[in-house]
Design a binder for these strands. Sequence first.
DNA 1: CCGGGGCTTTGACGTGGATCAAAGCCCCCG
DNA 2: CGGGGGCTTTGATCCACGTCAAAGCCCCGG
Lengths: 242, 242
Amino acid sequence: MDAMNPMFEAPRPPTRGRVACGACALNPMCHSRSAPPAPSPVETRRRLASGEALFNAGSPSHSIFAPRSGFLKARVAHPGGGTHIACFLLPGDVAGLDGFATGIHRSDAVALGDCEVCEIPSYRVEILSDTSPRLSAHFRSLLAEELARSQQHAAAIACLSVERRIVLFLLELGKRWFERGYSASAFQLPMSRRDIGEHLGLTAATLSRELSAFQARGWVAMQRRAVEIRDAHALHALLAER
Amino acid sequence: MDAMNPMFEAPRPPTRGRVACGACALNPMCHSRSAPPAPSPVETRRRLASGEALFNAGSPSHSIFAPRSGFLKARVAHPGGGTHIACFLLPGDVAGLDGFATGIHRSDAVALGDCEVCEIPSYRVEILSDTSPRLSAHFRSLLAEELARSQQHAAAIACLSVERRIVLFLLELGKRWFERGYSASAFQLPMSRRDIGEHLGLTAATLSRELSAFQARGWVAMQRRAVEIRDAHALHALLAER
DNA sequence: CCGGGGCTTTGACGTGGATCAAAGCCCCCG
DNA sequence: CGGGGGCTTTGATCCACGTCAAAGCCCCGG
C-alpha cells in the first residue's frame, strides 16, 4: 500500500474548535436582557484539563454547560460493567440537559483534551424561561431536539451493521463541523478509537479494521486522527441502499 | 419438561391498562385552571384500532398525546431498511414529545391493540407553560426524563449481552406496571415478540430462545403473552454481576 | 537522546446471535 | 366449524464481530 507517502494534506482546523458565541445553542438565553439578576446568565467559565470530568453521573445537577473551546464526551456507565458514549459535545452544543429533570446527572461529561465551558446555573434557566416565552420555547426545543437525536442514535446501534454505523458517524460528524463553518470533509477527530467504539457499540479493533477497509476502497483517507472524506457519494449510497 | 401442566395462574390485570387521570404524566397541565381558552387543555379523545398510527414520522406535529387505555409503540425507521422501537407507551406516558422541537414527528406511534388517547395541542402546551412556571418546569422535566431514558436505552443496547437486555426489559416493564399500581411480577405483554426484538436490537427467534432458557431455569413462567417473574432476585443478580 | 505507556493496527481464532426454514399454535373471520 | 394468516418456537447452519495477543508507533517526560 501507499501508506507511507503523504497522501493528503492533513486538514488544519478544526483541531481545537472555538465557536463564536453567536453560534452557541444557548446564545438566545445568553443575551437576553430580560434576565433580572445579571446581564449574562453565565455564572462561570470553567477550564478543564484533558480527561477531567465536568460532572459525574449521580452527582447533583445545578447547571447546564456550553463548551466554548475543546470537546467533551457524555459517558453513560452501565451497572455490571460496560460504558457507552451517548454523544460527543462540540463547541456550540449543550451539556448536562439529561440531569435537568431530577437534579441528578445521569451521565459523566469528560473533557477530550483541554477545554473551556460556560456554566449556566439551572435556576437562571428557570428564571429566563419564566420571564420569556421565547426562551422557554427555545429551551424546550433544545431538549426535544436532543431527545430525537438520542432516539435516532439508539435506532442506529440497534439496526445498522457496524460498517454503516461508522459511515453514519463520519458523515454526521462532518455535517456538524459544516454547520459550524468548517469543512464537512476534512477534520480532526477529537476522540480516540476506543471512544468512537464505545459510542457506536463496537470495539476499537473492529473499528480500526473497518477504517482500513474504507481507506483501501478510497472512500476516506486517514492518518492518526485526521480524516478526509474522499467519496462522500459512495458513503451516502452505502447508507441508503437496502 | 413440565411445559404442559398449568404451572401458574395467568395474571389477570393489566391486560388493557387504564390509569386514573391522577396518574397521568400530563395531569398537572390537565387540571390547571390557568388555561385561558378552556377548562381542560385536552382537545380531543381519539380512539385507535389495533395497528393504526396516531402519527407518522415526517408528518407535522401539532399535538402531544397521553394514552388513556391501551398501548402504543414508538417506531423509528432507518433509511436503508430496519426499524427500531424506541419505547412502548403505557397509559400515563406521553407520546409525541420528540416532534416538539421542529414541529415534525421523528417517529411513528402505532397502537398495539385498540386504544384511546387524549390529545393536547402544542399551542395549549405553550400557553400553559407561559402562564405557569410550575407547568413549564413540569414539561421540561418530562422532556429531560425522556431524554435520560433514551440515553440509558441506547447504552443498554450498545453494551449489554442479549440475555441481559431481555432481563432488563422484563424488570423495567414490571417496574412500570408497579408504578401504576399493578403487580411488578405478573403482567401481560401488550406487544409481539417481534416488537420486543426490535426494541432490544435482536431478532424474534433469538428472543424466543432466550425466554425458553429463562423458563427452563425457573426464572420466569410464560405462556403466550402472560409473564410471571418467579425469581426476580436471580434476574437482578444476573444484571449486576460483572 | 532514551525509555515507557498509551493508542492503533493487524492477525488468528472462537462464538454469540443472525439467518433460513419448517412446523405448530392461536385467533379471527367467513 | 373450518380455513388461513400471523405469531411463536425450534432446529441447523453461517458469519460478523468480539476476544486475545503481539507488534508498531507516537508522544511525553526525564
